[in-house]
């Protein structure tokens, strides 16, 4: 078990340094910080809310991440396939799942770092007022889990193709679907046609439904379980896709 963790760490380390050896990481961080600040302080109604909280910031994240996370994850496996390095990686003494988990963890860590860099917003709120920092902390936990779920889906789509653009688009579409099944303007509309319990049941699968709990400061194990299962399913499917390529 210790040996398998060592391999995961080495793979994750290489993946993480790959982000920072190319301009991708810096471009990503700058865009994320600019856009999250912009949405928070303009469309988010940060000042109009008249409350000291990060709701303006967190409300936009599912939409901002919808594009940024697939952009960060699209290269994970499609690049390995394009370069042919997948053949090197999988003929080294590691199991495919270790490579999948290692690469996933590296990108997730990168996204968590990006999230952490939004701390000036937290500082501003604390300076302007007296927010509930417990709620803010739980909001960040939810945001990190959301990023992980989107990322696992991007991992899957990038294993499907060696074309990063296709991987990106597929990931956006899948993540969008996971948002929309619980997006209230849409579900309210649907409730007129379908039976309310059906709409309700379907919305249980939405990332929004589970993300909202964290934003209210409620740490519910079911929400946690939801995000962890999305990640587990998507990574498992990634493994199946990679095995199928090799089987031909």
């Amino acid at each position: 078990m210790k040996g398998s963790w060592a391999a995961i760490r080495i793979i994750a380390k290489r993946e993480l340094s790959a982000y920072f050896e190319s301009p991708v990481a810096y471009v990503f961080l700058v865009i994320f910080l600019l856009l999250s600040g912009f949405f928070t302080f303009t469309f988010g109604g940060f000042f109009e809310r008249g409350e000291a909280s990060l709701a303006a910031f967190f409300n936009w994240l599912p939409w901002l991440f919808l594009f940024l996370v697939p952009a960060a994850g699209m290269r994970l496996w499609s690049e390995e396939r394009r370069l042919g390095t997948i053949e090197l990686l999988l003929t080294m003494p590691v199991a495919a799942w270790q490579a999948i988990v290692g690469k996933f963890l590296a990108s997730w860590l990168f996204l968590v770092v990006a999230l952490a860099l939004s701390f000036p917003i937290v500082a501003t709120v604390n300076w302007l007022g007296d927010p509930d920092n417990g709620v803010i902390a739980s909001g960040y936990v939810g945001a990190a889990l959301l990023a992980g779920a989107y990322l696992a889906i991007s991992c899957l789509t990038s294993a499907l193709t060696r074309n990063q653009v296709i991987a990106f688009i597929l990931a956006v579409v899948l993540c969008l679907a996971l948002i929309l099944v619980g997006f209230s303007p849409l579900t309210d509309l649907l409730a007129r046609w379908a039976s309310p319990w059906l709409v309700e049941a379907v919305s249980k699968f939405s990332v929004l439904t589970h993300y909202d709990g964290f934003q209210k400061g409620m740490l519910d194990s079911r929400d946690l379980l939801y995000f962890l299962s999305v990640m587990a399913y998507a990574l498992f499917a990634t493994g199946v896709v990679i095995r199928n390529h090799r089987t031909g």
């Binding site: 790959a18 050896e21 042919g84």
Partner: peptide
Amino acid sequence: AAPSYTEM
């Protein structure tokens, strides 16, 4: 075709 991680 001797693949490698070209950005390294």
